Computed example of a mutant assay.
Amino acid sequence: MSGNKKIEEGVEHVKNAEKSLKTSLLKWRPDYENAADEYNKAATCFRNAKAFEQCKDCLLKAVDCHKQNRALFYAAKALDQCVLICKELGDLREVASLAERAANMYQTHGSAESAAASLDKAAKILEAQHPADALRLFQRAAEIAMIQDSSRQAAEYTSKVARLHVKLQQYDLAADALRRELGLHQQNESYQAAGRLTVALVLVQLARGDVVAAEKAFKEWGNYCEGPEVQTLEMLLQAYDEEDPENANRALNSPFIKHMDVEYAILARDMPLPEGLQSPPKASVRENAASSYESQSEKGNTKSEEVGDTENQEKTEGKEPEEGDEYAGGLC
């Protein structure tokens, strides 16, 4: 019942807004300020009644009124409200475009921090289901932060960009983003964060299949790593260099790698291990090969002996007695 009451109240505010936009002989210009206020009130009523489609429609009309009145900051705020309503509706298709419009208005008004925050808020909504759109918004937020010389904020947005590249398996772009993030942390003297990022960069280079690049990353940034991190990375790189899958798996399962950001922990879990040195295949030996060879030899020897005996017998039978043989004619 209260929902119906709120809807009726919202409809009344819409009517008032429409009246404010009408012109007459004595009213040459619409009252955009009052109309925007009435549309905002109507949107609040519809939102409380959970009539989200009507709420979104009123907010977009309020945006137009604020633009006509050159109140860009309030127009951007109305667009931010639209993003939240899209989340309530479960329809995220327009979230990225609404956030980008809001950011443009904030920047035109001179509120760069609000622009970056608006993009960040929308990107978080999109991150799970639409990571590519979220990536674009985080990149835009990082650019705005860099323009404002806010290196800490830029490092935070760049970190999200790098993690999304890893999630999307865009390892070349992830490596570039990690280098930029390392440079920002070095500029801010955040050495502990730089050490953890060195581990992430080595993992990404190994995922690219480039062991040489991983070793270069360790040599360049490894001085920011702590003792356990250095030992683990040395073991990992040596294992990949020597193609030792057991030590590589042991290094990838080290506790601090498992407790890194989710994207890097998953990357380490699914990392292809080195194949290792394969032993040469054993020569295939036919069973009973030797015995059959011996049997053939024996058969050959037996046959030779038989042939020799036959020849000797023939020679003996066909031989005439010699003259000098005193027993040639027998004893008699």
Results as ranks from 00 to 15, higher is better:
residue 302 T to L: 10
residue 206 L to D: 07
residue 151 S to K: 15
residue 328 A to T: 13
residue 68 Q to P: 06
residue 153 Q to K: 12
residue 322 E to P: 07
residue 247 N to H: 14
residue 245 P to T: 08
residue 112 A to I: 02
residue 46 F to V: 02
residue 208 R to A: 06
residue 20 S to P: 01
residue 18 E to D: 14
residue 327 Y to V: 08
residue 48 N to L: 12
residue 256 F to P: 13
residue 55 C to K: 02
residue 190 S to F: 07
residue 45 C to D: 10
residue 266 I to C: 03
residue 50 K to V: 09
residue 262 V to G: 03
residue 25 L to A: 03
residue 216 K to G: 04
residue 89 L to I: 06
residue 38 E to I: 03
residue 235 M to I: 06
residue 193 A to M: 09
residue 257 I to A: 07
residue 278 Q to T: 10
residue 290 A to W: 12
residue 126 L to G: 00
residue 272 P to W: 04
residue 279 S to V: 11
residue 154 A to V: 00
residue 47 R to L: 15
residue 49 A to E: 11
residue 25 L to S: 04
residue 159 S to I: 00
residue 170 Q to N: 13
residue 41 K to P: 07
residue 327 Y to K: 15
residue 298 E to A: 12
residue 280 P to N: 06
residue 142 A to Q: 05
residue 174 A to K: 05
residue 331 L to E: 07
residue 142 A to E: 09
residue 124 K to S: 09
residue 235 M to P: 00
residue 149 D to H: 05
residue 34 N to D: 14
residue 174 A to Q: 04
residue 141 A to Y: 00
residue 155 A to I: 00
residue 195 G to H: 03
residue 122 A to T: 01
residue 56 K to W: 12
residue 263 E to N: 11
residue 136 R to S: 05
residue 325 D to N: 11
residue 98 L to A: 01
residue 38 E to A: 04
residue 137 L to R: 00
residue 329 G to E: 08
residue 199 V to C: 14
residue 23 T to L: 06
residue 37 D to S: 06
residue 235 M to Q: 13
residue 180 R to W: 03
residue 155 A to F: 00
residue 201 L to P: 09
residue 275 E to P: 01
residue 283 A to L: 13
residue 219 K to D: 15
residue 263 E to M: 05
residue 26 L to K: 14
residue 72 L to S: 13
residue 104 N to T: 14
residue 217 A to W: 01
residue 251 A to M: 04
residue 77 K to Q: 15
residue 328 A to G: 13
residue 113 E to N: 13
residue 167 K to R: 15
residue 323 E to P: 15
residue 71 A to R: 15
residue 175 A to D: 07
residue 88 E to A: 15
residue 227 G to V: 02
residue 43 A to G: 01
residue 142 A to I: 01
residue 196 R to D: 10
residue 244 D to I: 08
residue 315 K to P: 03
residue 162 A to S: 15
residue 227 G to N: 03
residue 76 A to C: 10
residue 159 S to Q: 02
residue 108 T to G: 12
residue 168 L to S: 06
residue 99 A to W: 00
residue 142 A to L: 04
residue 51 A to R: 11
residue 262 V to P: 01
residue 75 A to K: 05
residue 308 G to K: 05
residue 61 K to P: 05
residue 236 L to W: 03
residue 131 P to E: 13
